[in-house]
């Protein structure tokens, strides 16, 4: 079943077309890779899905519901969560509070019942605490719960960002270069982690990544972008041998072209 669908999505910044006529049909439970050289428009597509940028043309549909132009926080509530290319944690908050913040959107109690600690709020807060701790445990971060997020080492910050995204209870998880700055062993561990959470949380994953070993090993399908244009789509094997993709990444090989 199609879960997230992008139809003819186009984004123009003035005269520059960052993404043109992009189509994607993400099936439930799939893990799709989005690759392309720097400046190809990959992150722009994430920003269009979450309406951080307004779509110029086209539609974004989640589970049959048109979410184009919906406010970013509503889209998150509908079930799309993301991580960021340059980690955007709440640095001065603890790891636990980072995760707890992401549960806020499901809070039903009013401000006054929160301030006066009414039973309804206390119950919800207890649930949030438990769920947040469970999430940290699942990702092996429980012993850092009281550390400030900004003081954690890089790899753990990446993990914490993923657990924060999971706390919003997403259907679709958008991962923006999760392996950036990781060494090969860490990347391997990350691949295992992505496969594990995908199963545990019933996720559909769209992954932007430059690390080809990661993309080729875990993605079921790959979409390749260059200058905002989709130049190839298919299975990892097909992409590896696609001459157009190789040209986009490496050039033509002809010095005098």
């Amino acid at each position: 079943m199609s879960l997230l669908k992008l139809e003819h999505v186009t984004k123009r910044f003035g005269g520059l077309t960052a993404v043109s006529d992009f189509n994607l049909d993400l099936q439930e439970g799939e893990l799709v890779g989005l690759i392309g050289p720097n400046g190809a428009g990959k992150t722009t597509i994430f920003n269009l899905i979450t309406n951080t940028y307004l779509v110029s043309e086209g539609k974004v549909i989640l589970g049959g519901k048109d979410i184009t132009g919906m406010k970013t926080d509503r889209i998150t509530a509908e079930g799309i969560a993301r991580t960021f290319q340059n980690i955007r944690l709440f640095g001065e908050l603890t790891a636990l509070d980072n995760v707890r913040t992401a549960f806020h959107l499901r809070l039903k109690s009013s401000v006054l019942s929160a301030v006066f600690g009414l039973p309804g709020y206390r119950k919800e807060e207890k649930e949030i605490d438990d769920k947040a701790m469970l999430l940290l445990k699942t990702l092996g971060l429980e012993k850092y719960k009281d550390d400030l997020a900004g003081s954690l080492p890089y790899g753990l910050q990446r993990k914490l960002e993923i657990s924060r995204a999971l706390a919003t209870n997403p259907k679709v998880l958008l991962l923006d270069e999760p392996a950036a700055g990781m060494n090969p062993e860490e990347t391997l561990a990350l691949a295992a982690l992505i496969m594990r959470i995908r199963k545990e949380f019933n996720l559909t994953v769209l992954l932007i990544e430059h690390d080809m070993s990661l993309v080729m090993s875990i993605c079921e399908r790959i979409v390749v972008l260059d200058h905002g244009v989709t130049i190839a789509r298919g299975l990892p094997k097909e992409i590896q041998n696609n001459p157009e993709v190789i040209t986009a990444y490496l050039g033509t090989g002809d010095l005098y072209a």
């Binding site: 998150t76 709440f90 806020h104």
Partner: peptide
């Protein structure tokens, strides 16, 4: 801490 991230995490 980070307005963009806050909104992406569902904070109105």
């Amino acid at each position: 801490e980070d307005e963009v991230a806050a909104e992406a995490m569902g904070v109105n």
